[in-house]
Design a protein around this nucleic acid. Structure first.
Lengths: 245, 245
DNA sequence: TACTTGTCTTCCATTCACCGGAAGGAGCGG
DNA sequence: CCGCTCCTTCCGGTGAATGGAAGACAAGTA
């Protein structure tokens, strides 16, 4: 119950999220469970320092100083740096939305993303987390995940669209094919009108450290070419990672 | 002098910077001017919440939770979104490092960046700030900045390389040419071996809202082509911004 | 082994900064 | 004008933050 000032201030920051990018003072107080007067004082300090900024409307948003700080976080920074040029190549070759993702516990965490002009409906953003079973990169990461993670993921096969795979047996079969074929696909399982292909990114020879995927409106056309392009890029990333130790 | 707990905790976070991505507890205490015991306790709270993470070596780094939060900051998010595909096009056309920057007071703030395989020595990163007078995008932003900003910038023409323009008269002449010609160039003024070209990005017809630039090893070759490609991209971004209101 | 020098961690009595109810102000819609 | 919601300010009691001191640990030196 003991609530230190620090944790209270942090809880105020925690009230923000992808769905709540801007909040009024009273919303902040409500969402963090603090008395209005207390929230007011703490928000004032956060604002003074630059952790929060205030819109013309009076609502608060995450400030630029936190943006700066966040960019310093070593969240897969080696991976992102190594991958960057290959993502562009891949975009150039496919003109599709490109995704680089890692597994964070039982979710997909998108660490980089590259959107094209003609965008199919894509939900992901850099930093967003999605279920492992409903995305291409997620299936790849799940296929090579340890047993306990797979068990946990199978216990929460939520339906997102009518096409989401929610039958454990069918998903297990798909994962088996991912391991033998070396790539995963989805068809409108996360978002209607969007299909995806993804391949694993390996550091050295064994471990899968990330997944590389693209989102396209239709897969029937030239899946083979897309898979080939993905493989070239994934291998390039892997080599870069290996050479950088 | 009165140092509230909140501001102290924030000061601990502020001890991190591009040059100091990982810090030991004692470094944190020193850099923030806090007694070791106090720093220890506060860092513990920040760590528990996920604002800081701890490396195997025992050093602290910015944690993933702050990374998440930072991504929520509305730092030119409209601009970044509108520009993204055009940056890729520009990279495809030039294979050079591409920069999108805005002016933050008297500095250049890089809001997006796209690096190629063969990278010339480039100092910038997303989120980094550099002086206005020593970079291509900086000169563009300075050329269209209000009078007081220009005055302030002229009062601090620091030398970065032997080629940095530090004479006010010469810089003023260059800015005049930026306005008449519509583009700015630099030659090893920020970093040896790196030249740059940049053009303004206009929303609607008048105001310059950002600058778009590329960095190449040599400019003598095909400056005209590069400027043309930059202009196409900048116009595209401007149109997208205008159509999105 | 004993000593040095640097880390990090824990403890606890003092005190001072945080707390939050209450009251006042500002804006809005009926 | 009243009622509603939001934001801001005030202030006395009190419990959470403070930081010196002491101990634990590791690495380097003689």
């Amino acid at each position: 119950m003991a609530a230190s000032v620090t944790s209270r201030a942090l809880d105020l920051l925690g009230a923000f999220g992808p769905e709540h990018r801007s909040l009024t003072l009273s919303e902040l107080a409500r969402r963090s469970g603090l008395p209005l007067a207390t929230a007011h004082r703490l928000v004032g300090e956060l604002h003074k320092w630059g952790a929060l900024a205030r819109l013309a409307s009076g609502e608060y948003v995450i400030g630029r100083r936190l943006w700066d700080l966040g960019l310093l976080a070593p969240v897969q920074s080696g991976l992102r740096q190594a991958a960057s040029p290959f993502l562009h190549d891949l975009y150039g070759a496919t003109l599709a939305t490109v995704h680089l993702a890692v597994r964070d516990r039982v979710e997909v965490l998108y660490v980089d993303r590259l959107a094209g002009h003609v965008s199919v409906p894509v939900v992901s953003r850099i930093g967003s987390r999605l279920p492992l079973h409903a995305t291409g990169v997620g299936k790849v990461l799940l296929a090579y995940a340890p047993e306990d993670v797979r068990a946990e993921a199978f216990s929460r096969l939520t339906r997102v669209t009518p096409y989401t795979v929610t039958q454990p047996a069918r998903l297990a079969e798909q994962l088996r094919r991912v391991r033998t074929e070396g790539y995963a696909t989805t068809g409108e399982e996360m978002s209607l009108g969007a299909c995806s292909v993804a391949v694993p990114v390996r550091a050295g020879h064994d471990s899968v450290v990330a997944a590389l995927g693209i989102v396209v409106p239709d897969l029937r056309r030239d899946k083979a070419r897309l898979v080939a392009a993905l493989r070239v890029a994934a291998q390039g990333i892997g080599r870069t990672l290996a050479s950088a130790e």
